[in-house]
Amino acid sequence: MDGQAFWLTIRLAVLVATVLVVLGLPVAYWIAYSRRRWRFLVEAVVALPIVLPPTVLGFYVLVALGSHSPLGRWWQAMTGHTLAFTFEGLVIGSIIYSLPFAVQPFAASFILVDRRLIAASATLGASRLRTFFRVILPLSVPGLVTGVALSFAHTMGEFGVVLMVGGNIPGVTRTVSIDIYDKVQALDYAGANQTALVLLVISFVVLSVVYGVNRKVGAAWPWK
């Protein structure tokens, strides 16, 4: 197995999952509690990566990161190189690609928090921010764990977006799924199998954690 590709993928997934917590919580909060009429549009945009072919998403991300876009130019001015075909570019692409896998479980668990608890918190003088951190978030732990685990696992296994945005540069953008693809192309079935098996096991373990935590948290809470 290609150790370098493996660690690069782990690094990518951890980074993406972390950023998605910071980014996903406010987005999920807005979706869960906003009364705006166009909320459904935001929901649709967030959910897009679920149904969009990764190549389509990857293509637009590539265009957006390229030196013809404002973002790409700004990045180039700041760092001296383009975002496309870099690890940073990969991170941005992966964040967009995995956004719904974080936001949807977050929002779903926020919606489940009893509105009267939020009202009670307000009557006791707590600001919205305090209510969020003291009441909503602690009661959304299962959704939080699910969102983090799913976005981690999803990033681990992505292929299309990575190939479009990052290409296949060893040590920079070459993730395990691309490594598997390469090995199959080279008819190295044994090597491909080895790497694929590791990915399979990781995915299984992550999902087991998600379902296990959800069950255990639910069962251990007396008020459920």
């Binding site: 009267r116 009202a119 009670a120 307000a122 003088g125 009441v135 007396p222």
Partner: peptide, 17 residues
């Protein structure tokens, strides 16, 4: 709500579980 200084005991009490 936060500034009203009104105590409210809800029908289902709404204690933080």
């Amino acid at each position: 709500v936060q500034g009203r200084e009104i105590g409210y005991v809800f029908q289902d009490l709404a204690l933080f579980p």
